[in-house]
Design a protein around this nucleic acid. Structure first.
Lengths: 187, 187
DNA sequence: TTAATGATGCCACCTTTGTGAAGTAAATCT
DNA sequence: AGATTTACTTCACAAAGGTGGCATCATTAA
């Protein structure tokens, strides 16, 4: 649980009581490669913290598997389009490397917001930062060729290319596996 | 100011005092078409509410003007990648139709978060909703042809095509003006 | 260990989109 | 109103990326 509180400190330090309140509504999940942590069409009621392992959020568009994004150690995993709307998600979370994950019950967490405004503030800041990342990603997608997007990934997040099958990387970049292979071939 | 509080009600109703506190740090701006409400490379310290008019966020990539998104009546305008990080923004806000805008001083607003947790909650919810919209937009960009993206825009946000010059729509869709013209030609 | 499956790379061919150039229409400015 | 700029469209050509097929190598399962 310590890794989680260390992570929180970067956003908003918590009192001991607040940490305990979060610990009380959390549990540790270990899950094997290729399993779905959460399946498609379930409503997201859990916020996850990746202690160890790799995961991705994916969905199907016209029958094709598309990766929305990847998650590595020390990051928060959530399908926000379900978590914040209460609607079922069309997306699933899949484990790509045997993982150890902390699961926080979001229904209870949101109740804690009423008692501990420091917790509400913490998660406000966490999701503000995630929002900024997402806005920046749109910029990357809007006017760059596949090759430029690949090279950017190579520099900014080499983890992805070392720990994740290329077929998932391709759809993440918005291209087919063939195009990705072609681009990598340019060397 | 009333339009703003009406808008807030959809997210988190405020007490009269909280409304007054926000009114005290806000001002009304009227600004003409084609003017920049905020220029590139300024750090964003204002959250805007569009009462009347149209605006866009844009930036330059390799010397080319790219539109990130549009804003119409009854929406919050902010360059979050600057607002939430304190860094200067590479983006500007430009007015596309004579506008009447409410400007909220964000430095003072963030201070109000300490006194009025209802205000912190309100803006948490506003930006959570904006975050969800942004995540959904990535989905639209990841695996659709330019023609599909155009048709989706035609259905979901016809305002854009009726009130905004096509050259701005093109870069918003991630294509050139020539491609957009070609697609529209298919009729 | 062998079979089966999955991941990757590569080829030929075709479709979509970008580029540069040019023309027309509409808006804006004295 | 006339001049100038801006918006939009079109064309011919080039480049990028998708499709279907197939070969190879690595991983997993029996």
């Amino acid at each position: 649980m310590d890794a989680l509180f260390q992570y929180f400190k970067k956003f908003n330090p918590l009192s001991k009581e607040a940490e305990k309140a979060i610990a009380d509504i959390s549990s540790i999940v270990t899950i094997k490669k290729n399993k779905d942590l959460q399946p498609i069409s379930h409503t997201c009621k859990t916020i996850y913290f990746m202690k160890k392992g790799v995961a991705r959020i994916y969905y199907f568009k016209d029958g094709i598997d598309i990766t929305e994004r990847f998650f590595f150690e020390n990051s928060i995993i959530a399908r926000v389009e379900s978590l914040f709307t209460g609607k079922p998600s069309r997306k699933a979370i899949q484990i790509l490397e045997d993982a150890e994950i902390i699961a926080i019950n979001s229904t209870q967490l949101f109740k804690l917001y009423n008692t501990y405004s420091e917790i509400e503030r913490l998660f406000r800041k966490i999701f503000e930062a995630a929002y900024v990342e997402t806005v920046n990603r749109i910029e990357g997608m809007q006017f760059h060729s596949a090759e430029e997007r690949y090279n950017a990934l190579l520099i900014e997040d080499p983890n992805v290319l070392m720990r994740v099958p290329l077929k998932y990387v391709a759809s993440f970049l918005g291209i087919t596996q063939v195009s990705l292979s072609r681009i990598r071939g340019y060397r």
